[in-house]
């Protein structure tokens, strides 16, 4: 019994402490700097066979390109989430609603960032049933599971109260996958088709910049931001053979 109580107590304490430790403070940022750069894939992208669709082929087709490695100009890698890890103060979080579209039997976008307090519009362009089922990437715990039974249907839902990496599936079409990084701050960007990213209005200081790719994992770099200036941080990922 004592043990149960003390574990419960220390768990409660820990959660209070971590809540305090991670509180992001909003300040006025004038003349902030910019963290920018390119994420590249080194060498040849692994050949990934196309996704073989196993249901609704009349609408989805028999196969779909697998978007695990999307490489553009000069090896630029798309769909990498880049963020300032643990930044404690800066500009206010965005309030706009983010969107996740079910289209042609895939999610769009594949990867995006978001801030706590934002809402998400989940929509479908497809004339078949999808269900959008976000889960905590670490625990698999269901965040919610919403049916999108027909074309043109959409719902707007809040994101989870605390930041987490969210993996989204559609149970009805098991190949569908999306990733939503949720942060307690607004300093993140997803790389574009050429691997570029840009994080603006950063208060001067030294930060850990993290780049995350869904298959190749995470890399860190350190960046010192000066007022009103850009600092370039490039990343390269080498796929496992």
């Amino acid at each position: 019994m004592r043990k149960v109580l003390s574990t419960a107590l220390s768990a409660a304490l820990l959660s209070v402490l971590s809540a305090v430790g991670s509180a992001y403070e909003v300040i006025t940022v004038t003349n902030g700097g910019t963290v920018q750069g390119v994420v590249k894939l080194v060498g040849q992208a692994p050949t990934v066979p196309p996704i073989k669709t196993t249901k609704n082929q009349d609408y989805c087709g028999n196969s779909i390109d697998n978007p695990l490695y999307v490489v553009g100009k000069d090896g630029g890698l798309k769909n990498v989430e880049v963020f300032l890890k643990g930044i404690e103060k800066g500009k206010a979080n965005p309030t706009a609603t983010i969107t996740l579209l079910n289209t042609h039997c895939m999610f769009d976008p594949r990867v995006q960032g978001s801030s706590t307090g934002q809402q998400i519009k989940i929509a479908s362009d497809d004339p078949i049933l999808h269900n959008t089922h976000p889960q905590n990437n670490d625990t698999n715990a269901t965040i919610y599971n919403i049916a999108l039974p027909f074309k043109g249907f959409s719902v707007t839902k809040p994101l989870p109260a605390t930041p987490e990496l969210i993996r989204v599936k559609c149970d009805a079409h098991e190949w569908m996958r999306a990733w939503i990084w949720e942060f307690d701050h607004p300093y993140y960007a997803t790389t574009d088709a050429d691997g570029h990213f840009e994080i603006k209005d950063v208060p001067p200081g030294t930060y850990t910049v993290v780049a995350w790719h869904e298959v190749m994992g995470q890399k860190d770099a350190s960046a010192t931001v000066a007022a009103g200036k850009p600092v370039t941080v490039d990343f390269s990922f080498t796929p496992k053979k």
């Binding site: 715990a141 269901t142 599971n145 049916a147």
Partner: peptide, 14 residues
């Protein structure tokens, strides 16, 4: 309400 933890989704909005 759907069955949390399973593929069975919520149809409350539709």
């Amino acid at each position: 309400t759907g069955l949390n933890g399973t593929p069975m989704p919520s149809f409350t909005d539709s």
